[in-house]
Nucleic acid binder design. Sequence first.
DNA 1: TCCTGGCACTCGACCGAGTGGAGCGCTGAC
DNA 2: GTCAGCGCTCCACTCGGTCGAGTGCCAGGA
Lengths: 352, 352
Amino acid sequence: MDHATINLDARARTLLRTLIESYIRDGQPVGSRTLARTSGLSVSAATVRNVMADLEDMGLIHSPHTSAGRIPTPAGYRLFVDSLLEVRNPSPDEVRAIQSGFDPNASTQDLMDTTSNLLSRVTRMAGMVRLPRHRNVALSQIEFLRLGEGRILAILVIDGKEVQNRVLELERDFGQDELQRMANYLNAHLAGKSLHAVRAELLREMRDVRDDLDAMMLAAIDLGEKAVGDEDPDDVVVAGQTHLLGYEELADMERLRQLLEAFNEKQEILGILDQCIRSDRVQIFIGRESGLDWFENCSVVTAPYSVDGEVVGVLGVIGPTRMSYDRVIPIVDVTARLLGSALGEQPPGDPK
Amino acid sequence: MDHATINLDARARTLLRTLIESYIRDGQPVGSRTLARTSGLSVSAATVRNVMADLEDMGLIHSPHTSAGRIPTPAGYRLFVDSLLEVRNPSPDEVRAIQSGFDPNASTQDLMDTTSNLLSRVTRMAGMVRLPRHRNVALSQIEFLRLGEGRILAILVIDGKEVQNRVLELERDFGQDELQRMANYLNAHLAGKSLHAVRAELLREMRDVRDDLDAMMLAAIDLGEKAVGDEDPDDVVVAGQTHLLGYEELADMERLRQLLEAFNEKQEILGILDQCIRSDRVQIFIGRESGLDWFENCSVVTAPYSVDGEVVGVLGVIGPTRMSYDRVIPIVDVTARLLGSALGEQPPGDPK
DNA sequence: TCCTGGCACTCGACCGAGTGGAGCGCTGAC
DNA sequence: GTCAGCGCTCCACTCGGTCGAGTGCCAGGA
């Protein structure tokens, strides 16, 4: 982005900012005369034309055809959000609307659902929330249930409220009483530790002490490893896709189809969100920057959310590139904070 | 529908059929001349015009404006599918494509997903599958897990492969050992019976013998009742909504938005499918017949599927009213049969 | 050197008239 | 009952003309 900013003096920056703001508001190409009037600068339209010609040379704006006004290019938007944009604080109404949506007693899944709904409702675009990674949550309990010949159901209770099922297919068959003893053993050793720590510990024990343990314990560790071993499925919750049908700049049916298809497949959405998880602030992708063709005319605004200082997921919205960044950015930002603190609150305790 | 069929002689029926087939194929209003040529009857265009005027009076066709051709009305479509349509058998390729999609070892959920995907891929419209009701499936096992103060996780294993979790909030607190004994008691009494029977039996025992049982058994029955009591959540699996973006007769953005929104909410889709579950054959809704405004220009083709002679669910497709019924109907039909038999096959057994 | 007003030019949007074609209803003949 | 023909309607398309917005360029002035 440096190469573009270098040669921009204050006047050009003001004009570019005014132009983009005007285009975002009205959706119409903006010409030199209106720009001269609305910019607040006391310069003539002709001067504005000269500046606009320079901006066009730099690839920041372009005209859709001779003698229409100018509209921003992706590079123009980029410069705009990076260094020209003044975000307003979210209006108190909006904050209240968001805040009231969070129920601290809800399960993680419900929290994700309401959050993405919230995002889409407030911004009138598509909202999405990456499910939190379970790295730092505590394993409350683990149980096994025999389903049939060599088929075991593993039940993980996490943080005292989330429940995960996994069906394990095993070579050897275990009786229910054996399974019970294994579960007792694992619970005694591992309950209360984070899933991350559990996994590490199981691997370590398996390596270190394979000879010292009796067969049952070894089998238990093996089983535990299998149960917590799989990464929990990466997933993302999306809401409000249909809002995107309303934007005329996305009216191309084929593009629209690809876009909605991407929301169904979720794979590419995941890819985009994962690119953002490293940043610690609001991040923005404009048009094809994410490398996806069907993303033309779309932008993403994301923010990571964290619990106890550790980033556990990302949320954001997808909308037309021509969106009100000054409004959307603070909304995404504050939503991320609120989700983080809602997740951080303690669940109904398990005092035993 | 009777009132319309009465006065239609063979020639009028042929002409109506040809007209609708032609309109379905080309999407263009069809005029008297082309209709006279393509109908196979040796009558002149003028005669055809007379017949068309009659059909218009009966409300079966209408012209979008003076001196365009005619297009079918919903009533026309209705008559067409009820008594004029000759369904072709599905092409062997299509049958093979559908058949190869079914993996008899898949879980119910996976089976639903692949089925709706299949439907949408083969018909290039939106496919949907109503989850089967669990009336007739056997309870394999029931277990309880104490999550915290008064919070119990009930685990139902059904048919030896499906697992359902339910969190119960109770007044009284139970220890894990109490829960274990209750589960043992319930398993001894109920395992292998259908959920339906289980529910009935629990209710009966509760009423009949409330004094004879000791407190533990009474509590166990109460708990079991709570665990199986809730109907499992009604749900429907939808796939391929985005195919609908391609049809120009659905190009109205606002309508389209409502349509896709309905797919997200699922509530109204459920309503439509439930209306069809009583029928034992392929059923068709045309346009507003379902009573929903946003359904204009859309039709549904559904078929119930059954296991062991009992209807357990419905599947179908949604597409534009102008669809190839002769192709779609047999596809839906055969898919329903194949899904039924796939569900009927025995899961990996639990011989113990 | 930079700004400004002026001017010619371009392009798209809009409008109205004209044209061709598809299709209909009606009528009179067979 | 069927058919051919006539006149009519309406739509889609084209063409020419006008208008307005906007540009690029140039020459004059601070």
